[in-house]
């Protein structure tokens, strides 16, 4: 067989099997969701065609807009903070010293703790009448704060917990990318008199672009889909200040049994994310590393 023939067969088999599997178990359900968004469906009775009704209704749904706003707030703070801090952590542990592995493990551990349990522990930190934070304030003679029960502090409280939970994951990816930056480049620049900050900025950072693209896109998607910690810690309250898109979708589907309406929200979110990822690919990945 010629190389071309081999490549053709390999390409068809290697790409075909996974894509077929994805077509069945990932793409098909997505199309069902698209379809459901044009129906009213409560699971218990058959779907009914509703045209674009769900979408027009969404337009007038204040809470949906609120959810989008809250999600953007969450993303706008947690994404840059998370990316920046995990990069700093990666730089910190990117060295060969005794015990560095121990530090890496500690920084990674929050990632692997079950989210429900971690959220419960954080609730106890934040609790008004018996929490650790308010106890500390009390020792300093400051009156207590309703961390999770105040509209202005609830979202920051969730953001802090979420950043803590996911720092290690991105740190590992940055760490790997840092390790592959050739040391010679830094040394050459040092000889030329560049300080460590400038070396990092003009040499290391550009080399990190591919990792940055991956981290930013996956963090963007993850923060757009933030749900579990919101559900456990505040369930959207107080006064809807922490309702996020997926939280609202979940509630609409599984509490109000409006699967059609929930699907319409999911569809809109899908397109929002496509646009956001595209913009991000253009901005972060403009040194195009893809081809």
């Amino acid at each position: 067989m010629t190389i071309k023939q081999q490549q053709l067969i390999l390409g068809i088999v290697f790409l075909g099997i996974p894509l077929l599997w994805m077509l069945i178990w990932v793409v098909a359900p997505i199309f069902v969701v698209f379809y459901m968004s044009f129906t009213t469906y409560d699971v218990l009775s058959p779907m009914r065609w509703a045209g674009t009704w769900n979408y027009t209704d969404l337009w007038y749904d204040d809470l949906f807009w609120r959810a989008i706003g809250n999600t953007l707030y969450f993303t706008a703070v947690s994404l840059p903070a998370g990316v920046f801090l995990s990069l700093m952590l990666a730089v910190l542990v990117n060295r060969q010293l005794p015990f560095v592995g121990l530090f890496r493990t500690i920084f990674y551990m929050p990632v692997v703790t079950p989210l429900i349990a971690a959220a419960l522990a954080w609730i106890l930190f934040y609790e008004t009448s018996a929490g650790m934070f308010n106890y500390t304030l009390d020792l300093l003679g400051i009156s207590p704060v309703n961390w999770l029960n105040d509209q202005s502090t609830a979202m920051p409280a969730i953001i802090i917990m979420s950043v803590w939970k996911s720092l290690g994951y991105n740190m590992v990816i940055f760490l790997a990318a840092l390790q592959s930056v050739p040391k010679e480049l830094g040394e050459a620049a040092a000889i030329d008199g560049a300080g460590p900050v400038r070396r990092f900025w003009s040499i290391t950072l550009p080399m990190l672009t591919p990792a940055m693209v991956y981290v930013v896109i996956t963090s963007l998607i993850a923060s757009f889909q933030v749900f579990a910690q919101v559900r456990v810690m505040t369930d959207g309250g107080p006064n809807n200040s922490t309702v996020t898109i997926v939280h609202y979708i979940y509630r609409t589907a599984f509490q109000n049994l409006q699967f059609g309406y929930a699907s319409a929200m999911a569809t809109i979110m899908f397109f929002l994310l496509i646009v956001a990822s595209f913009v991000n690919l253009r901005l972060v990945g403009r040194r195009n590393v893809y081809d």
Binding site: E127, T128, S129, A130, N149, T234
Partner: peptide, 12 residues
């Protein structure tokens, strides 16, 4: 006081 968890108030 406002609290996030029923358990905490009860135990309180």
């Amino acid at each position: 006081t406002l609290n996030a968890q029923g358990d905490v108030v009860r135990q309180g």
